[in-house]
Simulated scan of single mutants.
Amino acid sequence: MEAISHAGAAVGVLSKEGVVLAAEKKIMSKLLETSKTTEKMYKLDEHIAAAVAGITADANILINAARLAAQRYMFTYDEPMPCEQLCQHLCDTKQGYTQFGGLRPFGVSFLFAGWDKHFGFQLYQSDPSGNYGGWKATAIGANNQAAQSILRQDYKEDISMDEALKLVVKVLNKTMDSTALTADKLELSSVTRDASGKVVYHVYTEEELTPILEAANAAAAAAEESSS
């Protein structure tokens, strides 16, 4: 848990129209080609995605296990695996690693965002212990306590997708070390449904992120001026 609290932050917000996930990208070197891959956002199945805080190598093992479980369920029952069932399956695996000597627990926390016919849009958080819970808005990783308090203040029951986008960016703006947010410092994705009812997982490109971040930086600067 201590290792995860120092890892790049990840934030999730649930709305009636979908779920927004955002995560801080830690750039270790300016020579790294970061735009080619996402290291924080993963698609588990057509209807569910995850954001990661912690050791990426540990996350990869669990991501593969989750994808395999989702495909096996689809193969057996010919319908998508319910979100909570997939989350619980992964948490059972994590819990097993805390139970016996000779095994190190997975040093990773997840935010799961998905949709199923039972409960609609859902957001779950899971810990290395195997604990998990459903949330309306939550944060994991660095400065998660500060992030949670902003979410508690600003979250509304009838929040729209646009407001949810602004909220996750605001939270990262406040909790990340950098003075101003730029598109290369974070990853943003959403899980929504299109007109035909198909679940759509979308990772925002740098071009799509830039106007959102510029608006957030301007709002933050205006808020600071009015408070001073």
Rank of each mutant, 00 (worst) to 15 (best):
M1C: 01
M1D: 04
A3E: 12
A3Q: 10
I4N: 02
H6Q: 13
H6Y: 10
A9F: 04
A10I: 07
A10N: 02
V11C: 08
V11A: 03
G12S: 04
L14D: 01
K16M: 04
G18A: 07
I27C: 01
S35C: 09
T37S: 14
K40F: 10
K40T: 11
K40Q: 14
K40L: 10
Y42P: 00
L44F: 13
D45N: 12
D45S: 15
I48G: 03
I48M: 14
I48D: 01
A51S: 15
G54C: 05
G54M: 04
T56Q: 15
D58C: 07
I61Q: 08
N64P: 00
A65G: 00
A65M: 08
A65R: 09
A66I: 13
L68T: 11
A69W: 04
A69G: 01
Q71F: 04
Q71K: 14
Y73N: 09
F75G: 03
D78M: 06
E79H: 01
E79I: 04
P80V: 02
M81N: 05
P82R: 12
E84Q: 13
Q85Y: 08
L86F: 02
L90W: 07
C91Y: 03
T93V: 14
Q95P: 01
G96N: 10
Y97E: 01
T98Q: 02
T98C: 12
Q99S: 12
F100T: 13
G101E: 14
R104H: 11
F106G: 05
S109V: 06
S109A: 15
L111P: 09
L111G: 10
L111A: 12
L111F: 08
F112R: 05
D116M: 07
K117F: 09
H118I: 10
F119C: 14
G120P: 08
F121R: 12
L123V: 10
Q125L: 09
S126R: 05
S126M: 02
S129M: 03
S129Q: 02
G130N: 03
Y132N: 04
G134A: 08
W135K: 02
A137T: 01
A137R: 05
G141W: 05
N143A: 10
A147N: 06
Q148R: 15
S149D: 06
S149I: 08
I150W: 02
I150E: 03
L151P: 06
Q153N: 05
K156E: 14
D158F: 08
S160E: 14
E163P: 00
K166S: 15
L167S: 14
K174W: 01
M176P: 07
D177W: 00
S178P: 00
L186M: 13
L188H: 03
T192R: 12
A195I: 09
A195K: 13
K198H: 11
Y201V: 07
Y201A: 00
H202G: 00
Y204G: 11
E207A: 15
E208C: 04
L209W: 03
T210M: 12
P211K: 10
I212T: 09
A215C: 10
A215Y: 06
N217L: 05
N217I: 03
A220P: 03
A223P: 02
A223H: 07
E224F: 04
E225P: 00
